[in-house]
Amino acid sequence: MGNMATEIVAFIFTISGWVLTSSTLPTDYWKVSSVDGTVITTATFWSNLWKTCVTDSTGVSNCKDFPSMLALDGYIQVCRGLMISAVCLGFFGAVLALVGMKCTKIGGSETTKARITCLSGLHFILNGICCLTACSLYAHRITSEFFDPLFVAQKFELGAALFIGWAGSALCILGGFIFCFSLTGGFSLSRAEFSYNGAASFISSRQKHSKPSNGPLYQAGSSRQFGKNAYV
């Protein structure tokens, strides 16, 4: 029962992290910058992995999609690939978790379900690592440009999407490790049961083959052996 409760907690962590990770991909504010003039003229510049926009004080936004994938900066292409990989890994991890958890009726034997659950945990750990790498790489680019005195273009700050991505990564990695470490007890218990059954069967078979016989040949052999050793 305790192992099942641990799997449920890990499943809640990983699914919550996967939802946060998936919501990070289309979120607008990966980086944001405000230009304040007078009270009337205030503009907010923001960008994500797909477009760059500006919003004025009236709330009207003008956006421009990135024209070509090949013309993008390298870090944006890497972040796109990592985030898409994270979403896919989280999806397959959720499917494997539903199959391998003890509270479900599918997946086969206990050993098979344990292996499936461990594989699900590895998927969620990789999901968290991919999202964490993407958000950290994007944040590093923002901070390096912000603190560079020679960078004269528009400077940005960290957006809300990065913090959401970091939180989702932490939940996925934590839940994935809980999935993996919750199975050590099940594997050790299975090995102990196998060893006990094997030892019991070996002892029973040995007793069967070594059972003494009460026939005349056995008695004769015993008497001859006794007579032989009597002169020693």
Score class of each variant (00 low, 15 high):
Gly168Ala: 12
Met4Lys: 05
Leu25Pro: 05
Met1Lys: 00
Ser47His: 12
Ala94Asp: 04
Leu189Asp: 03
Ser120Gln: 12
Trp50Thr: 15
Gly215Lys: 02
Val95Asn: 00
Ser213Arg: 15
Ser33Gln: 15
Glu7Cys: 06
Leu126Thr: 08
Ser188Pro: 04
Cys130Pro: 03
Asp36His: 15
Val32Ser: 11
Leu150Val: 09
Met83Pro: 00
Pro26Phe: 08
Gln207Thr: 12
Leu158Gly: 11
Asp73Arg: 07
Ser61Pro: 10
Phe124Val: 10
Ile164Asp: 11
Ala71Arg: 13
Phe226Val: 02
Pro67Leu: 07
Val9Pro: 01
Ala160Pro: 08
Arg191Asp: 14
Gly108Thr: 09
Asn127Gly: 13
Lys51Leu: 10
Lys208Phe: 14
Ser223Leu: 02
Ile203Gly: 08
Ala94Arg: 00
Met83Ala: 07
Phe124His: 12
Ser213Ala: 14
Leu217Arg: 06
Thr27Gly: 12
Ile84Phe: 02
Leu158Tyr: 06
Leu137Tyr: 00
Gly221Phe: 09
His140Val: 06
Ala5Glu: 10
Ala43Asn: 12
Leu137Gln: 03
Glu7Tyr: 01
Leu96Glu: 01
Ala134Arg: 07
Val232Glu: 04
Thr58Trp: 02
Gly81Val: 00
Phe226His: 00
Gly100Lys: 06
Gln154Gly: 05
Ser23His: 06
Gly37Pro: 02
Cys118Glu: 04
Asp28Asn: 14
Gly186Asn: 02
Leu174Gly: 04
Gly227Glu: 04
Leu89Met: 15
Gly108Leu: 03
Leu132Gln: 13
Val39Pro: 12
Val9Glu: 02
Gly108Trp: 03
Ala220Leu: 01
Leu49Met: 04
Leu158Arg: 11
Cys88Ile: 04
Ala43Asp: 11
Ile164Trp: 11
Gly90Ala: 15
Val87Thr: 11
Gly90Phe: 13
Ala43Phe: 10
Asn229Glu: 03
Thr104Lys: 09
Lys228Glu: 02
Gly186His: 05
Ser201His: 12
Trp46Ser: 11
